[in-house]
Write a protein that binds this DNA or RNA. Structure first.
Lengths: 238, 238
DNA sequence: GGCCAGATGTTGACAGCGTCCACTTAAGGG
DNA sequence: CCCTTAAGTGGACGCTGTCAACATCTGGCC
């Protein structure tokens, strides 16, 4: 009645999967409190470990939040791809994607703000690598949806012109991003009408792009800034 | 050589204008560190007062940041109005306004994020009154610029239709807001091209709006949510 | 099979933070 | 001239992020 296996497993010394547990707890707390100002100690308490255990998995709080943000990007990307599956026409798929994007932000504003807000962008102006690649993958979805389908139908000439595709992507993304954040910050509302608002805004954008796509200045990048660091190829921890 | 007036005024017991000084210090630190995670104590140190003096002027940190945010809205509004003065044509004035808006965000991302990010929106979903009215004033500028000038020329029919004007405002605002934040978060860049990007995006938007303005669903509000609180008429502290 | 290295978890400590409290100082109105 | 009261001070409390030293478990190597 001393060693291990007393009754069942009251608390094995090693948790086993603390990394995932902590990230999950952070997502829970973030969703509940809608604030990134929770404490690492709170997460440790929820996970039933000592206040310092998380430091074996995350260098500091910023590192943890970067991991949470990366999960957020993956969730959003999944919601966007899922949304497109139900539709055939490129126009409908693009609209579904836009709806999913806006919904993702509105349904969890704190997570969306963590992903896109500046918390992770330190004074080195460099985002954590894990978050960078997750964001890049999500952006690729936007690019595909616009250039492969809807854009090809609606603005046929664009297919041959990278600058024009970039222009369309920039307009689409900034439009949806802005709408999402105005909804999230309650500068536009009510939130219940977000689907109709997405559609309205998308329609207005397509009207414009159908005529002509404004050329983007050369040298402009869209997505994570190029060349600042060797992106580590999404090789998540061995 | 004991009482007061020893040499000049080494530190009069009462500061005299601590409220303004603290807000100014907060703006300085915010600009320098590009983070809202400075401490009230740090501001007190800069102002040369005890760590508790600011509490005579601000209920808590959120209250102070709300005041800072309000100043940010007023600064941005001023930059926007100033920018329009140099131009005659409505189209040019709208473009100047867009440039000023984007510049304002890019030049001080932390302030812009404080203004539009969710820090001030507590779980009561209510922004501080002072910040609400400041935001409302700034939004009025957008409304004027679009409906009075550029919109009247470019989309004449809209003048008689509130829903269409709202639609144009929504598209314009969300477009510029999104572009600003993508630039700020370095998801689009480089920042030096922000003026050209503003122009491109504006042009694309106007192309669309020139054809038709998507109708906005009825019941949608743009700007601070209506009726949630009696906005205190901008009467700043008697 | 046994042992050792390293990964994982714990305990204790430290400075800094936001905020509350009781106290002090100065200034302006009766 | 006094006295209420706004403005500023100093100390305290509990909480936080982070560091350092120590404990425990586990997998790979002899």
């Amino acid at each position: 009645m001393t060693k291990a296996t007393i009754t069942a497993d009251p608390r094995p010394y090693h948790h086993g999967d603390l990394h995932r547990t902590i990230v999950g707890a952070a997502l829970d707390v973030l969703s509940e409190s809608q604030s990134t100002e929770f404490s690492l100690r709170e997460l440790a308490r929820r996970a039933g470990v000592s206040h310092n255990a998380p430091y074996k998995h995350f260098a500091d709080k910023r590192d943890l939040l970067a991991a949470v943000s990366a999960v957020g990007f993956e969730l959003l990307a999944k919601q966007m791809t899922d949304a497109t599956k139900e539709h055939d026409s490129p126009r409908e798929r693009l609209a579904a994607m836009a709806r999913a994007y806006v919904r993702g932000g509105v349904n969890n504003p704190a997570l969306y703000r963590l992903m896109f807000g500046g918390y992770l962008t330190g004074q080195d102006d460099e985002r954590p690598a894990i978050e960078r690649t997750a964001a890049e993958n999500m952006k690729a979805l936007l690019v595909d949806a616009i250039s492969d389908g809807a854009l090809g139908r609606l603005i046929p000439t664009a297919a041959a012109n990278t600058r024009e595709i970039d222009g369309a992507i920039l307009i689409f993304w900034s439009q949806m991003h802005g709408l999402t954040l105005l909804l999230v910050d309650r500068l536009v509302g009510p939130r219940e009408k977000m689907d109709e608002l997405s559609e309205s805004v998308l329609q207005g954008m397509l009207n414009g792009l159908a005529n002509s796509i404004p050329a983007i200045p050369s040298g402009v990048w869209i997505g994570p800034p190029p060349g600042e660091s060797n992106v580590p190829d999404l090789a998540l921890k061995g």
